[in-house]
Design a protein around this nucleic acid. Structure first.
Lengths: 209, 209
DNA sequence: TAATCATTGCTCAATGTTTCACAAAAGATT
DNA sequence: AATCTTTTGTGAAACATTGAGCAATGATTA
């Protein structure tokens, strides 16, 4: 693949463009301009074109983009032309909510297993799938070909389960715990920190006033 | 307050520094250097000092920072030296999980109300608080002095409830729905998009291979 | 009190990202 | 077929963020 370094902000916008295009497909729209996409998702049209330019030329000058074609390209670029299997570690409120969240499956992400350390949680059902003990980690990752680990345990346990996930072969970690995780360079890490998001709001409410 | 524009990345890091300092306080540590903070949270020490420099001089040259003093400053900067009241709209899996999430209260965020449109959800209890109908929005925001609205409804309803929140006096919106929201310039908006985060992982898994 | 030490705060350079502006190109119109 | 209109793709400029290096300076020691 390309040797270019793609800005993360670009990747996030591509994901948002793809969702907007999906909506256009549902609405029966056949063709779209960078300007329309830009308005639809709240960025500039130059930004849209620049983002797309990292990956090729998908439009027709004077005309715009064919919605379905561009959507197809974006899904491929994002790696969403296949299914990914994820494992959730931590069956607390957040882990359970994510396990049951419909939005993931809709975009090609399966939850292959959900594990927890606590005996009261083990054996309970979350939709189709049953909470299992942490000891099942390596086996489930192996047999279900799981590449993504979702960490929703308390901060104190986060590094430990992360290490185990990586040892068991997971290639990417989505971390919801409020803890900075250390992972080897070949493992992809993203943090979603709910408190940080609220605190950015709080800062702005406080600061702009 | 200052006229400077503070980068959002800086604000997010301040939030993370403050959490790290809290941990140090728990461990009984009295003094810390920018280099130690940097290692603790995974950034460069220059970055730490630069971030703090937006707001003043908090350290002592040759010595470092007094942990408690710096923590106090950060909490004040972040607006966390007071309590904020939030309202959650949408009592689905995610809304419920957030309503029950302990992490928010720990940092000074109260959930003052949780509303839903669906009759089967209305009246159910989430911990202390009961799911109420959407019609209660204006009243609850008014009487509980709510400034933050958390949107966890499906994409199709997101703009509508956002408009109502703003009309009812909310000053900031934390949007979990996969929809680009339009808000007036004086309302602060942040988006937490769970699918986008997974898709960035998917992109990287796909692209780096 | 002077010398030494450690670490901040700050300046300036490097890097990364977004915006601007326009040539190029495709289709529509005459 | 020539011209016009529209919108892409892109190079260069503007802007923003991060990183490197060091002078300034408070604490400590002799």
């Amino acid at each position: 693949m390309k040797a270019y370094k793609i800005p993360e902000a670009t990747v996030m916008r591509l994901s948002i463009y793809s969702r907007y295009l999906h909506q256009l497909i549902d609405d029966g729209v056949k063709s779209v301009s960078s300007d329309e996409i830009a308005h639809g998702v709240g960025v500039s049209s130059a930004q849209v074109r620049k983002d797309l330019a990292y990956f090729g030329e998908f439009g027709t000058r004077g005309v715009g983009y064919k919605v379905e074609v561009l959507y197809g390209h974006l899904m491929k670029i994002l790696g969403l032309d296949r299914r990914w299997c994820a494992i959730i570690i931590g069956a607390g409120k957040l882990g359970s909510a994510l396990a049951l969240y419909q939005g993931f499956a809709a975009r090609g992400f399966n939850v292959g297993a959900i594990l927890d350390a606590s005996p009261d949680k083990i054996g309970t059902k979350l939709g189709e799938i049953e909470v299992e003990p942490l000891e099942m980690m390596a086996q489930r990752i192996e047999e279900k070909n799981i590449t993504i680990g979702i960490v929703t345990v308390p901060a104190s346990a986060a590094q430990e389960v992360t290490d185990k996930l990586i040892e068991s072969g997971v290639k990417a970690i989505l971390n919801f715990s409020p803890r900075v995780l250390k992972v080897p360079g070949n493992v992809i890490l993203r943090n979603v920190d709910l408190s940080v998001n609220l605190e950015v709001l709080s800062f702005n409410l406080n600061y702009l006033k």
